[in-house]
């Protein structure tokens, strides 16, 4: 009886959704609404250089902020300081895991069943694809959706695959700690360089180039690569901490 009621309820809710999507009662059609009703003009036409022409992919030059998608412009340029705080949150959580689970002499935890042969060999072939996809996403953060956070997570998942596929595998944790510290310090150093050159912390001080090209958008690709390295090494550290145990 309960299931029948749940089914009917689901049908009604689904029907309502389809109806509301169909007759545009809730949302105005794209392009039809007038943003000036809701926001102030100065937010819509906001460009500190008073240059409010249309942005054309592959042609516009010398923009205020030149990544090809707006999320990147906000995450890595306008609110870059916020992002610095976010990766600090991730750093603190990985530090907490290391404090709880880390010991002096640690050994790789043995899984209950030794891994399949095909998984062991196939993971080595797939590792290259996954790692390269992660690096690609981090490097192309200013051109495609994605960027440092998913890219770093893909790097960490490639290492998780090796952990699952090989009972003896352990990373050189020391190297990852160094990489993580280097990425964090470099992020702050870039911010200080912006402070020194332009007067604001994390201000974009490199030429922004043509929108849509690989070498463009100033410091945004550099910052995204650093974020990718930091996120990747932190999550790998967390995985390593969970999959090792103290030696007996």
């Amino acid at each position: 009886m309960k299931q029948v009621l749940a089914f009917i309820f689901t049908l009604i809710v689904g029907g309502l959704m389809i109806l509301s999507l169909n007759n545009n009662a809730l949302f105005t059609e794209y392009g039809e609404n007038n943003p000036e009703d809701t926001y102030s003009d100065s937010y819509i036409d906001r460009d500190v250089r008073d240059n409010n022409d249309d942005v054309i992919y592959g042609e516009s030059e010398g923009l205020e902020s030149a990544p090809a998608n707006i999320v990147t412009a906000i995450v890595a340029d306008y609110r870059s300081f916020d992002t610095l705080g976010e990766i600090t949150v991730l750093f603190i959580s990985s530090l907490g895991v290391a404090l709880l689970l880390g010991g002096k002499k640690k050994e790789r935890m043995a899984l209950n069943y030794s891994p399949n042969f095909m998984l062991r060999i196939g993971s080595r072939a797939l590792f290259g694809i996954i790692l390269m996809t992660g690096v690609f996403m981090a490097v192309h953060g200013h051109l495609t959706p994605g960027g440092g956070f998913p890219g770093g997570t893909m790097i960490a998942s490639s290492l998780l695959l090796l952990y699952l596929a090989n009972d003896e595998f352990r990373t050189k944790v020391q190297g990852f700690k160094l990489l993580e510290s280097f990425a964090g310090i470099a992020y702050v150093a870039i911010g200080l360089a912006g402070l020194y050159i332009s007067g604001y912390f994390l201000e974009n001080f490199l030429p922004t180039g043509t929108i849509g090209e690989l070498f463009s958008a100033g410091i945004i690709p550099i910052i995204y690569v650093l974020i990718g390295l930091k996120v990747g090494s932190e999550i790998t550290g967390i995985i390593d901490n969970f999959l090792t145990e103290e030696a007996l």
């Binding site: 069943y113 399949n116 095909m118 998984l119 196939g122 072939a125 797939l126 694809i129």
Partner: peptide, 24 residues
Amino acid sequence: LLIIIFIVLANPIGSSVLAKAAYL
């Protein structure tokens, strides 16, 4: 081509691992 290579490699590996798990 990359997607095809990935699927042809990964799909059989996944099912083999799953088959061993189901057997055990």
